[in-house]
């Protein structure tokens, strides 16, 4: 009975699968192939070689930029997790009637566009910005802090702000399915608040933390606009380097190699994350 229906489903899914293959997978594969080519002034030599990957591995600049991209991503994941936990808990466990209002408020900034948000931070953090003016009015300082804007601090404040909603959504979903009886049982058994979080809440919301964390991680690692516009001298990222290699430098093969190095590391992170989610969602542990 269900077989013909299943077949129709397969046929109906076919255009989507085809579009995804053509538009997502194919360019990546082309990029992958290019990463083994060489460039000679303005022509691309179609002779396979590992030289590009060797160059990425051998260059301190590229290694440093890649490390900084993932370091930034990890840092932002950590900060958003620390801010996200109480926010997600509050929305899931304390808000009853206004839940959708809170979630909408959380997502509203995402509709306003990257540039608008980044420039809003310029207005806030600039020498004549709201933060400096408030500090001066309060008498904390006589001269405005110049180092606020165009610094790693500004970049990370904006990155945290930008991607916090994704962490909160992941954690909120985890909290929604977290039975209060579990934390009550932990209290009943004598666990103080810190242990109730460490031994019960944290492991039971871990799938949400990993899911939200992976989203934030990938997006921060791939964000070059925020560092470029707010980071000043620190604004050069591995992504902007790739951008330059494909543009002015005309070294598509090296650009492809860097892109694929990043992609491989991200896929590894996803694999580890997916495995961790599967291990911690205890449903699959059934008999």
């Amino acid at each position: 009975m269900s077989q013909p229906v299943d077949k129709i489903g397969n046929w109906l899914a076919l255009p989507v699968v085809a579009a995804l293959t053509a538009l997502c997978l194919a360019p990546l594969l082309i990029l992958f192939v290019y990463s083994f080519f060489q460039v000679d002034f303005v022509t691309i030599l179609h002779e396979p070689t590992f030289a590009n990957y060797a160059k990425v591995a051998g260059s301190e600049t590229y290694r440093g930029l890649i490390a900084r991209a993932f370091g930034s991503a990890l840092l932002v994941v950590g900060i958003t997790a620390i801010i996200g936990y109480p926010v997600a808990w509050f929305i899931a466990k304390r808000v009853v009637a206004a839940k959708s209002t809170f979630l909408t408020l959380l997502l509203v900034p995402l509709y306003s566009g990257d540039l608008v948000r980044i420039f809003a931070w310029r207005v806030l953090l600039g020498a004549e910005g709201a933060v400096n003016r408030s500090l001066m009015w309060l008498g904390v300082t006589d001269t405005p802090f110049g180092g606020l804007l165009f610094s790693p601090l500004a970049t990370h404040i904006a990155l945290t702000y930008n991607y916090l909603p994704f962490m909160v959504i992941g954690l909120w979903l985890a909290f929604e399915s977290l039975d209060d009886a579990w934390t009550e049982a932990a209290a009943d058994l004598g666990a103080p608040a810190v242990d109730r979080f460490r031994r019960v809440t944290l492991p039971l919301t871990l799938p949400g933390l990993i899911a939200g964390g992976l989203m934030v991680f990938v997006m921060v690692a791939g964000d070059y606009l925020t560092p470029q516009l707010l980071g000043g001298a620190s604004g050069i990222t591995i992504i902007s380097a790739v951008n330059d290699l494909f543009g002015t430098a005309f070294d598509w093969p090296l650009g492809s190699a860097i892109a694929w190095t990043m992609l491989a590391i991200l896929m590894l992170c996803f694999g580890v994350g997916a495995l961790a989610i599967r291990r911690s969602s205890f449903i699959s542990e059934g008999t």
Binding site: D179, A181, E184, A185, A186, V200, P203, L204, S280, F282
Partner: peptide, 10 residues
């Protein structure tokens, strides 16, 4: 002893 036991699943 909780109504649905509240055993820690992890």
């Amino acid at each position: 002893v909780f109504q649905n036991y509240a055993l820690f699943p992890h």
